[in-house]
Design a protein around this nucleic acid. Sequence first.
DNA 1: GACGTGGCCGTTTTT
DNA 2: CGGCCACGTC
Length: 795
Amino acid sequence: MEPQQGNGYGSEAGGDQGGEHPLLAMLNAEQKQAVLHTEGPVLVLAGAGSGKTRVITHRIAWLISELGVFPWQILAMTFTNKAAGEMRERVAHAVGDSASQLWLGTFHSVGVRLLRQLAGYVGLQPTFSIYDTDDQQRVIVRVMKALGVSEATHKPKMFASYIDRAKNRCMGPHDPRLKELAVSAFDKKALSVYQAYEKEMRLANAVDFGDLIMLPAQALASDPNVCHNLAQRFRYVLVDEFQDTNFAQFELLKYLTSVHGNLCVVGDDDQSIYSWRGAEVGNILGFPKMFDGAEVIKLERNYRSTETILRASTAVVSRNTTRHGKVLWTDRGLGDPITLHVAASDRDEADWVARQIDRRQHETSLGEFAVFYRTNACSRVLEDSLRRFRLPYVLIGGMKFYERAEVKDALAWCRLLVNQDDSAAWMRAVGSPRRGIGDTTIEAVQKHASQIERSLPAAAQDLVRLGGAGRAAEKLKTFHDLVERLREEIEPMRADQAGARILEASGLKKALQEDKDPDAADRLENLQQLLAAMGEHADSADDPGLRSFLETVALVSDVDKLSDAQARVSLMTMHSAKGLEFDVAFVVGLEEGLLPHANVLGGTAEREADPRDLEEERRLFYVAMTRARKKLHLSHARLRRRFDGREMPSEPSRFLQAVPRDLVQIDDAGHGFRSASSWGSSWGQPARSSSSAAPARPTWGAPAGPGNRAAQATGAWSTGNPLAGRGTAHHDDDVPAIDRSEGEAGFQVGGKALHVRFGTGKILDIAGYGGEAQLTVQFPGVGIKKIVARFLKPA
DNA sequence: GACGTGGCCGTTTTT
DNA sequence: CGGCCACGTC
C-alpha cells in the first residue's frame, strides 16, 4: 500500500551510513526516531505519504528481532483488514513466520477477539452474534412498536445514530450521564428505545458494531484484575489512523496500556474524515496531554507524490484553521501539471475520465488508475462510461456480495446454528425457504418472547410446548427439530462442509434450483461462491469453523477486496480512498452541493451550517488529492443529473479556488488546453492578466496564456449561462459505440456458452463488461437464464 | 400465508 | 430512475 521509498533515498537520508542495522537503514531520521523510541507514549504525526506504514512495520520488526519481544505481546490496530494484512505480510518479511502470532487487526476485529474472552463480564455467551446495521434497524423498529413510538414521527435511523453515538462515547443504556442529558423529548424517547434495544440484543446474545469496542472497555473497567493481566500481556500497543478513533476506542486503549503506557499512535489530523461516525480529532490533538511525557514526532517528508500534487493539496488544506500544521516536502520534482476538466454534463465528465484512461493505459497499468467521488451514487455514470470503453474496473462500496438476499439467507441459517438465540437470524431463516410460517406466526412468537423475556427461537419453542402456536405449531416444531439436528451435525465440521450441509438441509439450495426466475441461476452460483469463501477461510484461518467464518464476514470492509494483482480501474468514494495510493487519480464531481456536500452547507431548516463540517469536507478533498503519485485530474460538470432524472446546473466547488493556478492546466469542454498562468483568486472576477480578450465569465475565467492551443473558451460556457451547454460536446467521435454483439472473453451474441449445470446454450444477449457481464442464455430443456459471465465458458 | 402491483421515498460518508 | 414497503388478491 505504501510506496517503496524513492530512488536513491537510502543513501541521501539523514546519516544512514553503511553497517547500520538493515531495519533502520531505509529510514530517515524522524522515522528512525519513531522506531527506536519504544518505551512510553509516542505520537507520530505522519503527513500523507510520509511512510507511516513503514514506521509501524519496522517498529514491530524491531521490537521482535532486536528487543526480543514475543509477537503475541504486540497489539497493532489498523483501519481496514487490507491494511492489517499488508502490515502482517511486511512484518513477516522481516521476522518470518512468527508474525502470524501478532495481535494485528482492525479495532473491531480485535474487539471481537477480546469480547470472546470477556463475554461473561458483560452478560454474553461466547457464541454471540454480530448484528449488522440491517439487523440493528429491525430490532429498533420492533422496539419502537413495542414502546408505541410512531415510525412516522421518528425515523429508526435517528435512534440508530443516537445509540451509536452513546456507544462511541462508551455510555451504556443505563449510564447516569445519559439520563442527565435526556432533557429534550426526543432524547428521552431515544434513551428508552436504547434501553429496550439493549435488552433485546442481550436476549438474542447479539452485539452491534459499537458494542465491539464499548463492551470490552466496560469489561476491563469492571474488573481491574483482568484489565491488569491483559495490559501486562500486551507490552506494546500500536495504532494506525489514530485521527479516526473515537472516545470508546481511546478508552479501550487506556485500559490496554494501563500497566506500561507503551502506546504508539500514528495519524494525521489533516486526514480526519470520520467525525460523523464518532471520531474525535481531540484524541490526536490532545494526545500529549492525555499521555504525559509523550514523544511527538512529525513526519513531513513525502515519498509519494510529485511536488505539484503536494503543493496543490497543501494549499487546499491550509485553509483549515484547526490543525496541527505540518509542512510537507518532497524532492521528487514538479512532475505533470494538475488537469482541471470542465465538462458539460456528468455524463461527459465520465466519458472524459474513460477516454483519458483509455489513452494512457499503454503507459500505465489499469490498476494504477483510480476515480474518487463524494457519494456512491456518482459511480453509476462512471461505470457506464468505463463499460462503453471496455475498461475493466472494480467498484468499492455499492451493493456488496454479503448483502445479497440469498447470501444473507444462508448466513442467517449459519448464525442461528452457531448462536441458538440469534433472533434476527431466526426470523430470516424461518421464512426462507418458505415453509408456511408467516407474519401472523412470527408476531405471535414475538409477543410471547417479550412476555417471557426470552429470545425469539426460545420463545417459539416455548410457544409450541404450551400449545399456543395454533396451526403453525407443527411447522414450528419441524423447523426447530431440523435446526437442532443440524446444529449437532455440523458441530465438528469445517466451515465449508458445514455450509454445504446447511444449504442442503435447509432447503435453500433446492428452492433456488426449482425457482423459475431467470436470476435464480445467478443466486445459486452466489451460494456456490459463498461455499468457496468458506473453504478458503477454513484452509487459511487459525480456526476453520463456521463461527470464525461468520466473524470475519461481519467485519470485512469493501476495500479489503482490492487486490494489487488485478489490472482494473478502481472506483470508490473519497472516504474509501484513505490509506490507498495510485499513479493516476481522478477526483470528479467537484461541485458545490457535492463537495462540500449540501448537507453541511446548511440553508435547510434541519441543520445550521457548521464550519467544522466544512473543514472536514475540505480534508476529504485533501485526502483524495494526496492519493495520486504522478498525475492528478480534477473535474466538475456544469450540469448534473439528479436521482429523480432532472438535470440541474451546478457550480464549481469552492475548494477549487484554493488550488494554485500555476499548477493547473484547464481542459475545457471545447477540447482545448489553456494553462492557467493567471488564475483568478475568486469567482466572478476576471483574472488579473494582461491578456486582452478574456471574456467575463463567472467561473474559471482564466484567460489564455501565451503559447496555448484553443485559446478561447468557446460557445456555451464563455457566455456564463450554465444551461447553454446542454446537449453539446458529447465527443461522440471518441466514444466507441455500444456494441453488444461481442462480449469479452470470447462470448458472442448468437454464439454458444457452456454452464456446469445447464450444459451448452445459445447466447441471446450480453449486457455489461467482463466477468460481471450479464449473459442471457437459452439452454435446451432448461429455458432462458440470465447468468453472470464468470460462471460461463464460451463453447 | 404467498405472491403481485402500485405508490412513495430518497442519496453523505462506513467499521 | 430504482428500491422498498404497504396493500390488495388468490
